[in-house]
Design a protein around this nucleic acid. Structure first.
Lengths: 226, 226
DNA sequence: GTCTATAATTAGATAGAC
DNA sequence: GTCTATCTAATTATAGAC
């Protein structure tokens, strides 16, 4: 009589598998886009099996949405927006200072999470349900929230005279590209742009450029000069 | 006796097939990245057959390089750089005016060719031979050419105080993102950002932001206000 | 040079044992 | 819930007729 074949199946822990899948998915989706990303690669990168994605998520697309949701939550937490958004009552100088502080948090975030902007570029290239969902659920709130603040700062002569429908793209583009293209920057400059030194230097430059009318004398620091 | 099967093969013209393949490839590579792009889709989009790519180009990667080369040639022509680069002799105000004019040409170019920045984002996400080639052959000249000009303008107090190793990314990021994300902008604003009106508005804002010390009085035009 | 046919991989999703 | 095996479809590249 034949013995049934002994198959050794070492189980791996599954406790936080969903979260680990999401983290791995963000890297893969950022690197290759939704179409180019491979669920097999995502699973393997954390030592899981490809069908586990279809078990824990409905589909590749469901995994993508879960990953995006998670990333936007992370960003919202990192920016601590309320201080800026609920600043209707502040005078413009205080608002500008809050805005500058938020800019520093934004630069820090995009330096740590270039995935977000990479994924945005991947998705905005061609219209489709993923882009619609992304725009309406996640981008529009930021876009609409920024406009009145910026308008106020421009009117006060503190901010550069940029249209309040363009500033979102100027701000995001100017702040994130060096981190999105981090490997290129490293090759060109010989240093990684994500170091504390470069992140601060970049934020200083952006603040000086976007808020030329902001006086930062109160902290005793001179505005950064090249 | 059996007749040999009659196969109707209608030949299509091949005159400019190489160029048409390159144009189609740029769109496809921009939309899906190198890995995600399909040579079949590229060929079909211009009514050609997939193996013709391997005939006219060595491989998918050779097609990619040919497409990139073509795009950078297009950009160089659109920017008409010599006027700026050979401007060592100019005084800083004239240099600033030349720079502003080049900025307008740049904004016009990126509005017409978002493919370039899309492809850059796709490629810079992960290191590899394609990124190395792209950086050394095409990006470094621009990066290195911009630095001394910018340093001069900052020193003269005309340009915003941004590090000359960061300005390349600030400039490209700020100018291109709204066109890279054109579909998103259209959904949010209700108008395409590529219209003459928005391209001008965007360039005006960028010039005011990057060159706050530039006096544009000579042409009689007031600096744009929001 | 154009085109058909196909080889060799690899993709996402699913069935079913455990 | 984990894991193997497999299905269907799509990928690039190539061989060879015309």
């Amino acid at each position: 009589m034949k013995q049934p074949p002994v198959i050794v199946r070492t189980r791996r822990d599954q406790s936080d598998l969903r979260e680990r899948l999401i983290a791995a998915a963000l890297q893969e989706f950022a690197a290759h886009g939704f179409v180019g990303a491979s669920t097999r690669t995502i699973a393997q990168s954390i030592g899981a099996h490809q069908p586990q994605i279809n078990y824990h998520f409905e589909s590749k697309e469901a995994l993508w949405r879960a990953a995006i949701d998670h990333l936007f939550v992370t960003m919202r937490e990192a920016l601590t927006l309320p201080a800026v958004v609920s600043a209707e009552a502040l005078d413009t100088t205080e608002l500008a200072l809050e805005f500058a502080a938020m800019l520093r948090r934004l630069v820090k975030f995009v330096s740590m999470h270039p995935e977000l902007n990479r994924i945005m570029v991947h998705e905005t290239t061609s219209p489709g349900p993923r882009l619609e969902w992304l725009t309406e659920c996640h981008v529009r709130p930021y876009f609409n929230g920024l406009r009145p603040l910026w308008k106020k700062l421009v009117k006060a002569g503190i901010a550069a005279p940029i249209d309040d429908r363009l500033i979102h793209y100027v701000l995001i583009g100017a702040s994130s590209l060096v981190f999105v293209n981090a490997h290129e920057f490293s090759a060109l400059v010989g240093e990684a742009p994500t170091s504390k030194k470069w992140v601060k230097r970049h934020a200083d430059g952006l603040i000086a450029m976007l808020l030329p009318g902001l006086q930062t004398t109160r902290s005793g620091k001179a505005p950064p000069r090249n």
